[in-house]
Design a protein around this nucleic acid. Structure first.
Lengths: 397, 397
DNA sequence: TAAACTTAATAAAATATTTAATAAGTAGCA
DNA sequence: TGCTACTTATTAAATATTTTATTAAGTTTA
């Protein structure tokens, strides 16, 4: 199912200019000429047309770089909007962003349990419809929706094989297109996290970066050759089920020895509850809700609780071993630690680095940095918007 | 150090046409228009100019596809030549290829020990100079040399950090450029193997393919997004030293548990000698030369020797476990088994598939094929030429 | 404070590339 | 057979894009 772009430009270059300006915020004519690989007069011509059309505005002079100072330009923020949706196992956050990455109104959070919930998809569609209806006649300005979600997602076919089934042959994307009448782009949450780092985080301008999503599971989003890498069927970066553990614990996936059985917040929470009950010295008390437990462990660790630090260090080392494998295979320039685990990023980075020293050939690891993500909680929503803008001007699918 | 291209065309498109025709062999105007993404009239114009210039020849009509039959074209084979060099630990093979991938004369093999041999590089330069001198005045037609070699190779900087040092700050490439006065391209042998599969083997036209180089070590060449992937510093695909083994044997690299300590022909040869001496039933006799021993094991296995098959099956399973990790991370469409181990490819493929069944999430492995390379012994030389042609028309850095 | 050097923007000319219309040939089919 | 649909080839006209030269507006050097 195809939906026409609501914003029609008369040339392909203009779409590229919009995309570039969106991601760079502001840029001079020369910047644009260089980053799009087109000549300056050519860029200038299109840019001036876009100023006349109201899509681009002049933002004055930038400081000189040793010559005539450049005029800089940006997008007119309220000429287009993007519907941005971040879905996780329990909650879904919905926002509308303008072209300067500002939310039009406060992000809406709805409770939406994904697991074994046949109503989830219609509820989601309803919520999105309601948010869209708040736009009034500005609804025309919405150029698409980006959805970040867990599970096995194939972006190209628009299907999530794990959650939000449609009960028919229709793909998730086509279902939502039919309900909302705007272009829809779906992507796995770890991949969206990586895209966020690429477009506005530590991976900006870099070529080969691995973003580790430390949380209830262990995810991986891969930036390869300067772009998000999805693999042949869209499942690249399935780090959580690589066979790595020595303890051969049975994993939910049916296999043994998966990384996920040893190095996630879920496992840490479980171990902590057992440990405390069997008498480990700690400021922590066992909680029934494992999510809350993991939160408690992380804040205890940040306040110096030795047992919490020990548990997280153990997890970090095992993740580090997996990262060592990754470095051998991909030879990236940077590893970014993202996801909920960033809260204890400083604690994790030491054992990870130690694992790299132990398991990596120095020639490989010495050119690979390890950093903790600096993007906050809204990164997912911003990146879901990036997902839409990345494809702006291309006809779906 | 920069060397001017010996063949000057007046437009970039002509270089692209040469590259395309080289890799496709023959093509119609329409084929070229499609694969280069340019309009037909535009392609036709350049093509006819190149016919006038003598670089392209018309090869007659291809069978009709339901319409007017297309005229097909190919390169004039003897307008350019490529110097192609395949270096391994002990021997170096040198050939000169024309544009139809035919050797101008029989491939020369010289003995050239790489390890701890300061004379290796001057000897190599001398041998290459001698081969070039055989070209007489056709020397001008040589558009470059492609070198396939083991070790840590950085193609961009033209340095091999492991072998063939120059004893100065000069890079290997610059040294050879200075000696031979032609553009030089160097690349790691596993990567060249992958390139060979991409350009003329089972990976032709595919996007994401992993080529396993089974031999004295375990190498990996990665095809990602339809091109050879080298990683940030050129060392991507360092499969042999990923920490995977449970037996924690000390590896040459100083680490423990590397794949290389368990799953190479070298290990198989060593195990076989020990096994036979301790009384294993086999048609094999222990040989002092481990290279010869591994050859003997492979031919014994192909003739049904149970012990040889057992050893190779064990190796296959361990390589399979590493491939399982690879599939989880990269999600490729095809795994190709290449290198010397292809000789027993049929024997290896079963345990590898078994390891995949055991260690892969079905959703990932079910879309990934495993095949044995069909390229012969000269594949390395052909791919070294491909290395040159891939860059034909670009100015060397 | 002027000369030399940078970087940026504009205009004119030259080139590259595509679109559209048409011609030429073939396979499939009634 | 002859018609239709389809593929390929050629041409002219229109458009897109770059190159080159020139002007403008600053910084650095001495």
């Amino acid at each position: 199912m195809i939906v026409r772009q609501t914003i029609p430009f008369n040339t392909q270059l203009k779409y590229r200019l919009v995309r570039q300006l969106y991601f760079s915020g502001v840029a001079s004519c020369n910047d644009l000429s260089e980053s799009l690989g087109k000549s300056l007069p050519h860029i200038a011509k299109s840019l001036y047309e876009m100023i006349d059309e109201g899509f681009v505005i002049e933002k004055g002079y930038a400081p000189s770089n040793g010559g005539r100072p450049p005029l800089i330009y940006s997008l007119q923020p309220d000429k287009m909007y993007i519907l941005s949706v971040a879905i996780d196992q329990l909650y879904t956050r919905i926002g509308i962003l303008d072209l300067s990455n500002q939310f039009l109104f406060q992000v809406e959070t709805i409770e939406l349990r994904l697991l074994n919930n046949n109503d989830a998809l219609p509820l989601l569609a309803k919520a999105l419809t309601r948010v869209l209806s708040r736009m009034g006649k500005d609804r025309k300005k919405i150029i698409g929706a980006g959805l970040s979600m867990p599970g096995f997602v194939n972006t190209r076919s628009g299907i999530n094989f794990t959650y939000l089934h449609t009960n028919s042959k229709e793909s998730l994307r086509d279902y939502l297109v039919r309900q909302l009448h705007i272009p829809i782009y779906i992507e796995n949450d770890s991949n969206v996290l990586a895209l966020a780092e690429l477009k506005m985080g530590l991976a900006k301008g870099l070529q080969d970066v691995m973003v580790i999503d430390i949380g209830w599971g262990v995810g991986l989003g891969m930036i390869v050759n300067g772009g998000l890498f999805r693999g042949h069927t869209g499942y690249a970066g399935e780090l959580s089920h690589i066979p790595i553990s020595e303890s051969n614990t049975l994993c939910e996936c049916g296999k043994r020895g998966c990384l996920e059985t040893e190095a996630t917040l879920r496992v840490v929470a479980k171990k902590a509850i057992e440990g405390i009950r069997s008498g480990k010295v700690s400021s922590l008390r066992p909680l029934n809700n494992p999510e809350k437990m993991s939160e408690a462990i992380m804040s205890a660790a940040n306040q110096g609780d030795q047992y919490a630090i020990e548990l997280l260090t153990e997890m970090g080392f095992k993740i580090g071993k997996a990262i060592a494998i990754l470095i051998h295979i991909v030879n990236p320039e940077l590893i970014i630690l993202g996801g909920r685990g960033t809260e204890v990023g400083k604690i994790l980075i030491a054992p990870i680095q130690q694992a790299l020293n132990q398991y990596c050939i120095p020639r490989l690891s010495e050119h690979t940095g390890v950093k903790v993500s600096q993007l906050g909680h809204d990164a997912g929503l911003l990146a879901a918007a990036a997902l839409v803008m990345e494809k702006f001007g291309e006809t779906q699918p």
